[in-house]
Every structure is written in structure tokens, then in C-alpha cells.
Write a protein that binds this DNA or RNA. Structure first.
Length: 298
DNA sequence: CGCAGGCCCTGGTAGC
DNA sequence: TGCTACCAGGGCCTGC
């Protein structure tokens, strides 16, 4: 699933293959792909036609093409989105949602998204930073990312530390995979109350977050070639390096204890029950804490 | 305002 | 074989 390292890999690919080129036209093949462009698909298309891509930028899991008009084509890959650079003659796959052709007659940019959680919009005047994502916090790859500030904010949260890590208004770019991996490295259970972490422990956790995503980016960077801007939907080459995510029942790489999977926010958390002991709960159950599977009412 | 949880969506797969 | 249920899950939205 595309998290920060994967999105940054895509950004690098787009910067290489799309920056500096003039868009000839855009074609929206599925309305849901531009559902967040409230002015509609026709307006989206009109806003990009004839514009030149000046830069490709990113914050957290969002990325955008800065245009010479001052606008931006803002995109999010969701769970299954891909930005593919393909020859205009390449056949359209079943999940092609938006296609951009270029005035130079070179490769198209194609937004392909099976599950349609992703999408695009044109942000007016958003070339520098789209206002639509002003609430997204800086991510660890951002030069202005301030660990002290994030640690302070984290320690103000009265919720589980994993929930806090996934909150994009606190820290950008962390998803389920890297949250679990970071917590394993820090030997912390995700249900630990964020506010209960000491300042040094919180700093150490943040260091692991940065470290694991940096390592993943280094792996992701190896896996795209000239005409294919990699996302590949899966975890990429980094999946073989994962310590806990997706490894239910397999031995912890540190202590050999079987990795456990538990329901978490209608998805899963993976952790080592020995290295990452669940917090004791003397009082009422912590909200958001893992609990046995419950069926939704209805 | 902080926080919890529902919902959106589809293809692959497990189970019956 | 064909059906159902489940799974992946980021972010927006609502409600408390």
C-alpha cells in the first residue's frame, strides 16, 4: 500500500518523466476519480489543458503537479492508485481513471486505480501548497519537519500511540505498515497511551519512523524503469524486510515469538507480544484499543 | 476542540 | 460450480 516511501518514489518518477512538459489534454474516464474536484470533470479538464508542469511536489501521501498557471493537479493514490508513464499507444487497462496526453507527443501520464479510494483535483493557486491539504502535517522527509514539535504534540494525545501515528494532522505519511514496523522497532505496543510516553521514548519512536521509511524509500527507488513509474500496489521490494507487518504466526525477528495479528480500526495490527507487551489496563478500557472482533450492527 | 468509528470501493480468496 | 463473507485500508465525515 502506498505510504510515504512509495509516494515519494512515485514523485521522483514523475519529476523525471513529466516535469517540464506541456499537457495537451486530460481525459476523465471515471467520475469518481475527480469526485473531490467539486467544479466537476469538465472544469478539471479545462484547467489543465495547455498547462506546463513546472514541478512535482509532495506532502505526506499527497503529491501534486505544479502548473505554470499557479494551479496544481493534486493527487492521492489511496490504496491502489498508480501513476503510470506509458506510450500513448499503450492499451487502456480496465482501471484507467484519468489520462493526460502531452504536447510533445511523448508518454502519457495515466492515473490507474482499481479500488478508487484515490483521486485527483485541480487546486486553484495551489502550486506551492494546495489549500485542500493545508491540514496535512509535514512528514519526516520534509526539511522543515520538526521532531521536537511532533514529540510534544504526540505527548498531548490522549489516545493510543498507533492511532496518533496514523493521524495525518500530527505527522504526515505514516500508514498502517510503517506504524507497525516503527512500533516494533521501538518495542512499543500500539495501544500504549501516547501521552504516557516519556519524551526520550517518543523521540526514539519518531527516529524509528524516520529510519524505517528511509530504508523503504531506498528499496523503492530501485524498482522503477523508464516507462513505468513504480507503485506496483504491493509493498514493493521492502516487503521482504518487514519485521511484523503481514507476518502473523511467524517468528519475531528479534526474539522468535510468534507475531500476533489483532483487529484495529477495521483493519489489522501486527506486533510481537513479547517485545511489545500490551499495556496493563487498571481502569476502564482505553478507547480505540484492540479488542476481539465485533460485527457491526445491522 | 479532541477523539472514536462508520463509510467509501473492488478484486482476490477462503469457505461452504 | 457458484455463492457469500472477508480482507486490504487512507481519509473524510459525523456524532459525542
Amino acid at each position: 500500500m502506498p505510504e510515504l516511501p512509495e509516494v515519494e518514489t512515485v514523485r521522483l518518477g514523475l519529476a523525471r518523466h513529466v516535469a517540464g512538459r506541456q499537457i495537451q489534454a486530460a481525459d476523465v474516464l471515471h467520475p469518481r476519480a475527480v469526485r473531490r474536484h467539486v467544479a466537476g470533470a469538465a472544469d478539471f479538464v479545462a484547467a489543465v489543458a495547455g498547462r506546463t508542469v513546472t514541478e512535482v511536489r509532495r506532502r505526506g501521501k499527497y503529491l501534486w503537479l505544479a502548473l505554470d498557471s499557479g494551479d496544481a493537479v493534486l493527487g492521492h493514490l489511496g490504496m491502489s492508485g498508480q501513476m503510470l508513464v506509458q506510450p500513448p499507444t499503450a492499451a487502456a487497462g480496465p482501471h484507467l481513471r484519468v489520462r493526460f496526453t502531452f504536447a510533445d507527443g511523448g508518454p502519457d501520464l495515466r492515473f490507474v486505480d482499481q479500488r478508487t479510494f484515490g483521486g485527483m483535483l485541480v487546486s486553484r493557486g495551489g502550486a506551492e501548497l494546495p489549500r485542500e491539504i493545508a491540514h496535512i502535517a509535514r512528514d519526516p522527509f520534509d526539511p522543515l519537519f520538526d521532531p521536537d514539535e511532533v514529540v510534544a504534540a504526540l505527548r498531548r494525545r490522549r489516545t493510543g500511540v498507533k492511532r496518533a501515528l496514523l493521524d495525518q494532522t500530527l505527522i504526515g505519511g505514516v500508514g498502517n505498515i510503517y506504524a507497525d514496523e516503527s512500533l516494533w522497532r521501538a518495542r512499543l505496543h500500539g495501544d500504549r497511551l501516547a501521552a504516557s510516553l516519556s519524551r526520550p521514548v517518543a523521540h526514539r519512536l519518531l527516529g524509528h519512523v524516520t529510519e524505517v521509511m528511509t530504508e523503504a524509500l531506498a528499496q523503492g527507488g530501485t524498482s522503477f524503469d523508464a516507462l513505468y513509474v513504480n507503485v506496483n500496489g504491493e509493498s514493493g521490494y521492502f516487503d521482504r524486510a518487514l519485521a511484523v507487518y503481514g507476518r502473523e504466526g511467524q517468528p519475531c525477528r528479534r526474539c522468535g515469538t510468534a507475531v500476533r495479528r489483532e483487529p484495529f480500526l477495521n483493519r489489522s495490527s501486527y506486533f510481537c507480544p513479547r517485545c511489545q507487551p500490551p499495556p496493563r489496563r487498571p481502569g476502564p478500557r482505553l478507547p480505540g484499543q484492540s479488542r476481539p472482533r465485533q460485527r457491526a450492527a445491522g
